[in-house]
């Protein structure tokens, strides 16, 4: 009787490897996101029993008025209307008199958040644009502003 000689193939079947690999690639492509990890930083003052007193007349008051996020922010600086382009030159003049002059950035509750960021970003560029660094940029909250008004006995 003739027994047929069996040939054993030594190959590893890799046909499904492509499927698995592509499945993995698709999984990672969908789930991995190049997360945004940059932004504007600011530090809040350390908690102390005697917070630094900022007198209104010693500071520069920047008020962001309501407007559209697609349009340049409408500002009121020390009570006067001003385009955003005029903000840093105005501050430069003030800083020449007092380099430690703080800037208070207030924003109307109805103004878009993006407009506040645009103004904050402009203030943070002071060193590059006017060659002078603003030491203190304060962003008081509505509650803090109201407390100050109450303390001063002024109705908003």
């Amino acid at each position: 009787m003739n027994i047929a000689k069996k040939t054993v193939e030594s190959e590893i079947f890799t046909g499904s490897m492509a499927d698995i690999s592509f499945l993995l690639i698709i999984f990672f492509m969908i789930t991995s996101a190049f997360s945004a990890n940059r932004g504007l930083d600011f530090s809040l003052p350390e908690d102390s029993t005697t917070p630094p007193e900022i007198k209104q007349e010693d500071s520069i008051d920047v008020y962001v008025q309501p407007g559209s996020v697609d349009a340049p922010p409408v500002l009121q600086v020390d009570g006067e209307q001003m385009p955003i382009e005029g903000l840093l030159p105005y501050i430069a003049e003030k800083l020449k008199q007092n380099p430690e002059k703080p800037v208070i950035l207030r924003t109307d509750p109805a103004a878009p958040y993006g407009n506040m960021i645009a103004v904050f970003d402009e203030l943070r560029q002071s060193e590059a644009k006017i060659g002078m660094k603003i030491d203190t940029i304060s962003i008081p909250t509505q509650r803090e502003i109201e407390n100050i008004w109450t303390m001063l006995g002024i109705g908003q």
Partner: peptide, 26 residues
């Protein structure tokens, strides 16, 4: 496009909680 009022409330909450470092993602 979020009205500043919303951010203000969150900022106030963070100040009340004595948070020291804040990053505004942009």
């Amino acid at each position: 496009e979020v009205p500043y009022e919303r951010f203000d409330a969150v900022l106030d909450a963070l100040k009340q909680s004595k948070v020291k470092y804040i990053y505004l993602l942009s």
